[in-house]
Structure formats: structure tokens, C-alpha cells
Measured scan of single mutants.
Amino acid sequence: KLPPGWEKRMFRSNGTVYYFNHITNASQFERPSG
């Protein structure tokens, strides 16, 4: 389970998975720990 605010997303163009935090508007490719 991801830390609060984080969700898994995917770029439609190339299928790359990334993680987005809707609380802080942060995004990263590494899976957030917590």
C-alpha cells in the first residue's frame, strides 16, 4: 500500500508507470516508501 496521497499512474504515450501525490502535487518514478 502506498503512503497517504500517493497513487500509481501511467503515461498513455509510452506506458511508463509513475507515482503522483495529489496532496503535494509531487510526482516520481520511484515507488514512495512509507
Rank of each mutant, 00 (worst) to 15 (best):
K1G: 11
K1F: 11
K1P: 15
L2N: 01
L2A: 01
L2I: 04
L2D: 15
P3K: 01
P3F: 01
P3W: 03
P4A: 12
P4Q: 07
P4D: 11
P4F: 11
G5S: 02
G5F: 06
G5D: 05
G5H: 06
G5T: 00
G5L: 02
G5E: 06
G5K: 00
G5W: 04
W6A: 01
W6S: 02
W6Y: 01
E7V: 13
E7H: 09
K8G: 04
K8A: 11
K8T: 09
R9T: 01
R9L: 07
R9V: 06
M10T: 12
M10H: 10
M10L: 11
M10Q: 10
M10A: 08
F11G: 07
F11L: 14
F11P: 00
R12G: 15
R12F: 09
R12Q: 11
S13E: 12
N14G: 09
N14D: 14
N14L: 09
N14Q: 09
G15L: 07
G15A: 10
G15T: 06
T16V: 14
T16Y: 14
V17H: 07
V17T: 07
V17M: 05
V17Y: 12
V17W: 07
Y18K: 00
Y18H: 01
Y18S: 00
Y18M: 04
Y18L: 02
Y19G: 00
Y19W: 10
Y19E: 00
Y19L: 00
F20T: 04
F20G: 00
F20L: 01
N21G: 02
N21W: 08
N21R: 03
H22D: 05
H22K: 12
H22V: 15
H22E: 07
H22L: 15
I23K: 07
I23R: 05
T24A: 02
T24K: 03
T24N: 06
T24E: 02
T24R: 06
N25I: 05
N25G: 15
N25T: 06
N25D: 06
A26H: 11
A26W: 07
S27N: 03
S27G: 05
S27I: 15
Q28G: 04
Q28D: 00
Q28S: 07
Q28E: 03
F29M: 08
E30I: 06
E30P: 06
E30S: 04
E30Q: 10
R31V: 09
R31G: 03
R31I: 12
P32I: 03
P32H: 02
P32S: 03
P32L: 01
P32N: 01
S33P: 13
S33K: 10
S33E: 11
S33N: 12
S33T: 13
S33Y: 14
S33A: 09
S33G: 14
G34D: 12
G34P: 11
